[in-house]
Design a protein around this nucleic acid. Sequence first.
DNA 1: CAAAAGTGAGAAAACCTTTTCTCACTTGAC
DNA 2: GTCAAGTGAGAAAAGGTTTTCTCACTTTTG
Lengths: 344, 344
Amino acid sequence: MREDILEIGGAKRRITIHDVAAAAGVSISTASKALNNNGRMGDETRERVKRVAMEIGFRPNALARGLLSKRSFTIGLLTNDTYGRFTLPVMAGVSEALVDHGVSVFLCAIEDDPALGQIHVEAMLDKQVDGIIATGKRLDRRLPVDLSNLPVPVVYAFTEGTPDSVTFRSDDAHGATLAVQWLQQIGRQRIVHITGPRDFFSVHERADAFSQAAGVAEPVMYGVWSESWGHEAIAQIWSRSGEKPDALFCGNDQIARGAVDALRERGIKVPEDVSVIGFDNWEIVAAQTRPPLTTVDMELKELGRQAGLTVLALAEGRPVEPGVRKLPCRLVVRQSCGGDSPRK
Amino acid sequence: MREDILEIGGAKRRITIHDVAAAAGVSISTASKALNNNGRMGDETRERVKRVAMEIGFRPNALARGLLSKRSFTIGLLTNDTYGRFTLPVMAGVSEALVDHGVSVFLCAIEDDPALGQIHVEAMLDKQVDGIIATGKRLDRRLPVDLSNLPVPVVYAFTEGTPDSVTFRSDDAHGATLAVQWLQQIGRQRIVHITGPRDFFSVHERADAFSQAAGVAEPVMYGVWSESWGHEAIAQIWSRSGEKPDALFCGNDQIARGAVDALRERGIKVPEDVSVIGFDNWEIVAAQTRPPLTTVDMELKELGRQAGLTVLALAEGRPVEPGVRKLPCRLVVRQSCGGDSPRK
DNA sequence: CAAAAGTGAGAAAACCTTTTCTCACTTGAC
DNA sequence: GTCAAGTGAGAAAAGGTTTTCTCACTTTTG
């Protein structure tokens, strides 16, 4: 039996500060003050209480504490990203940043269902969460639930927020620029951008940055977020007459993988003949591609970390400037561009 | 401003049962009893209290309620599956099963770090979780944290549990049998099993079931859980002399994908010449393979759902038989075996 | 030596809800 | 007209913790 559970008449009972007080021969208030380094008392008393508390394995009941302090040391993470591709790194960052502060995270997957979203938000509020982080799978879409005017702070991460809120997002233009500059550094001249559907905001951002960095004459091909579109795009390019590109910048890793596979099937060598860069750094796709993909990482874990620290600051009443914060991307160099350093 | 927040001197205050009582002109106790359909009172009074509570948007404070009832309506999900491939479906099932009961889920990713695991477990216990579900990425490994003798019930899902605990897992032998029988039904005779490392328990289970169903003479090839092993296995088989298989049963979808790609590159048609079945039904891999993979789904969401309901039952003191429960798998038919029904 | 200042520790209220107990009043029966 | 039973609703305690207030006692100061 664990030492910090009292067995009384067969029923387990958690040990409370009453037990500590009794064991140390002091009052409850003294025990509390000793443990929290509050109030006035002799050093000997304080140490004795602490020692006794440690010995009998006392851990304060967070419910009781929260009731009084109006802080539950709990936040909610709301997401509509069922597959978890974006939410998982964000969640990891949030959790990592907050565990040091004793904050736990409720994960609520609401799957684009407004009713389910409402239920989860109400459940979180009932449980007195200190704040909510809303995250999703798309920068330019709202979660299907109204988070304005909640009694707790809300921070948006990788999803569209309200105008006066704090929103963290990736700087897709930066990511695209990184990719193009890398390709140029290794000597590539004719770059094609194969990307996703036009109605994604991030598609525009990346495409605009691409045009600016690569030159407005370089072609942009819009399609869908799948491997097969990568295949098809290659088929289209190589069925056209004229000079072929020596580099591809793809809108995500799946498209890039499709393109790489299609090139290989045509006998075109990656990276010797054509360099390819993806986007997302989705390990399972990027690392398993032959050759493994050089790709743009949106640093979602860092994004989650910052969102976590921000919601904590807001919960503690510290002032936070509202607005959109764009986080820089990072180029992850693997083998699909040729070598791990720019050619001279 | 939302109706359920009172603005007092600039500070937001959540509304409590005191406000309901005052607004309805009754005492706190009467208000509580009215809302919980407890105690005795006139129908008119009860209805009036309920109406008033609804109007001013009262929601009971779960912390206060939990303090009294010793139920927090909160459970913890502990996982070491950083990538979330297995945890995400489990989590979805748990959440889906418990949201109806007003239970929220703390997600704690501990990444095989015992210290981190300890921290998370203690944080959960402090927050008085009603129970813990432990889940992982491997059936035959323990989480790096001791969950025995906790003051709350623990249920294991897709991870090795203690002998006297309740454990839910997939029936891998059943899944393998399903795969082989399907291949036999569509007329395949010579099946090869290409699977993962020998030290995985589920690899043995699947391989044994494979041998039993396909015949002990059919070859089993052990390797790693990657696409490249799928490639290599195909290279090995086709470099050997003798009759080639007309079907492959792969240990996971990544191996299957690698195998399918390798076959295509050799000009061998899937499914016309060789049928391929994967394992895991990992959408992102299975659905993007050309052709999309027929594969075995371990029904992890259902597994999560049952784990959730079980931990709830234990939390409520209902008796649950300890032991290992194996959940049947399901064959997801796509196009890598040929057609969507057995050949005659 | 008396008053003031300082020190150690406990009592009680507060957080919000639920539940048991008690009380006053009404109704029905004899 | 009295007593018992029934009805409606409030008082109070409990749950575990923190914090403020108070009190008794000791030390310092003039």
